[in-house]
C-alpha cells in the first residue's frame, strides 16, 4: 500500500540542476517525449532524462519502503486476531505487502540502484515512506479501517499508476492493484462485522474511523496549488491525475460506504452538493501532516527503530548465508579441479 502523500519538502528540495542541454540531448528528449505522448512504455534500456529516472527511483523506492514499514502497524495485530479466519487473512495481507515491497525494489533496481542502497536510505532516515504508517493501531478496528480507508486511498492513487509511462513500474502496479482491491474488500467486510456487532464493537469501529479519516485524506498529498512536481510528472505520464482530483474521488466513493456501515464521518462540514454531484468536505489540518513529516508523528521513531532492529538482529544470519554459499562454492571448485 502507498500513496503520493510523502515528504513534500524532499520533493521540493531536489530540483533538476539547470545546465546546458546539448543538441543530441535535445533530440533524445524530444524523441522521449514523443514516445511518452504516444503512450509507449519506456523500458530500462531506453534513453530517459536524468530527472525522469531520479523521480522514478524516488517514487518507486518510497512506495517500496511504505509497503515494508506498512507491515508493522498491521503486523501489530497478527498475534491478536480474534478468529483463525481473520488471523489467516491478516497474515496473508501483511505477507502480500512484503511481496509488493519485493517487486517494487526490483522495479527500482531496473533504474540502476541496488536494493541494499535503498534500504540503507530508509534505515538512515534519508528516504521517506508514507506518513500514514506513523499512526498507531491500538484496537482491532484499526485493521478494518486501514484496509477500508488506507488501502482504499492507495487504490485511488495506484490504479492510474498501472498506466505509468515506465514499463516495469506499470506492470508491478497491475499485480499490486489486484491484491490491494482484495485487501480493501476484506477491510470493509471486517468493519461491517464490527458495525453490525455489539455496541462495544460499533464503538470500536467509529473510533477507528474518527482517527483514520483525516489522515487518509492527507494521503493524497498537498493541494494542487501547493504541489511542487505535479506538472512535470503529468507531462512524463508518471502521474495522471492531480492530488485534489484523486482526493475528491476517494471522498465520493467512501462517504456512501460509511453510511452503509451506519458510521459517522468526523467532518461536520461534509455535505453532498447536488449541483456538482460531489461531496464537499472541511479543510484539512496540514499542520498535523507537516509535523508527522518532520518526525513528530505518534509512531515515527518506533517504526524506524523496528526496521533497524530487524536489520541489525539479522546481520549474523545474512553473514552466515554468505559464508555458507562461499564454502559451497569453494568445495565445488575443489571437486571440479
Amino acid at each position: 500500500m502507498y500513496t503520493q502523500g510523502l515528504d513534500a519538502r524532499a520533493e521540493q528540495g531536489a530540483p533538476p540542476s539547470p545546465r546546458l542541454v546539448t543538441e543530441d540531448e535535445a533530440r533524445l528528449q524530444g524523441r522521449f517525449q514523443e514516445r511518452v505522448d504516444a503512450e509507449e512504455k519506456i523500458e530500462p534500456r531506453d534513453w530517459m532524462p536524468e530527472g525522469y529516472r531520479r523521480t522514478l527511483v524516488r517514487q518507486i523506492s518510497q512506495h517500496a519502503h511504505s509497503e515494508i514499514v506498512g507491515m508493522l502497524p498491521e503486523g501489530n495485530w497478527v498475534t491478536r486476531a480474534p478468529t483463525l479466519r481473520r488471523k489467516v487473512a491478516l497474515l496473508a495481507k501483511v505477507q502480500d505487502e512484503g511481496g509488493h515491497g519485493l517487486y517494487l525494489y526490483s522495479a527500482a533496481e531496473t533504474l540502476g540502484v541496488s536494493r541494499d542502497e535503498l534500504v540503507g536510505q530508509l534505515l538512515s532516515g534519508k528516504a521517506k515512506y508514507s506518513s500514514i504508517f506513523n499512526y498507531p493501531t491500538p484496537t482491532w478496528a484499526d485493521i478494518g479501517a486501514i484496509g477500508w480507508l488506507v488501502d482504499g486511498a492507495a487504490i485511488m492513487n495506484q490504479v492510474p499508476l498501472c498506466r505509468c509511462s515506465y514499463g516495469p513500474y506499470a506492470r508491478a502496479m497491475v499485480r499490486i492493484c489486484r491484491e490491494e482491491s482484495f485487501h480493501q474488500r476484506q477491510g470493509y467486510e471486517l468493519m461491517l462485522a464490527l458495525a453490525q456487532g455489539t455496541p462495544e464493537q460499533k464503538r470500536m469501529a467509529q473510533d477507528a474511523l474518527n482517527r483514520w479519516w483525516w489522515p487518509s485524506l492527507m494521503m493524497f498529498g498537498p493541494s494542487d496549488d501547493q504541489s511542487a512536481h505535479s506538472a512535470q510528472n503529468m507531462a512524463w505520464k508518471i502521474k495522471r491525475f492531480s492530488n485534489d482530483e484523486l482526493r475528491q474521488r476517494f471522498v465520493d466513493a467512501t462517504v456512501p460506504q460509511a453510511e452503509f456501515l451506519g458510521l459517522t464521518i468526523p467532518d461536520p462540514e461534509l455535505r453532498f452538493d447536488a449541483g456538482t454531484g460531489h461531496y464537499e468536505f472541511g479543510a484539512i489540518d496540514w499542520t498535523e501532516f507537516n509535523e508527522i513529516l518532520k518526525g513528530n508523528g505518534p509512531c515515527n521513531r518506533e517504526r524506524i527503530e523496528a526496521r533497524r532492529k530487524a536489520w541489525d538482529d539479522g546481520a549474523w544470519v545474512r553473514e552466515a548465508a554468505v559464508a555458507h554459499a562461499d564454502k559451497r562454492r569453494q568445495r565445488a571448485l575443489k571437486k571440479a579441479g
Partner: peptide, 15 residues
C-alpha cells in the same frame, strides 16, 4: 512464527 511477521532478517525470509 507469525510473531516474526515484519521482523525477519531479510524480506524474502519474512515472506
Amino acid at each position: 512464527l507469525s510473531e516474526w511477521c515484519g521482523h525477519a532478517p531479510e524480506l524474502e525470509e519474512d515472506i
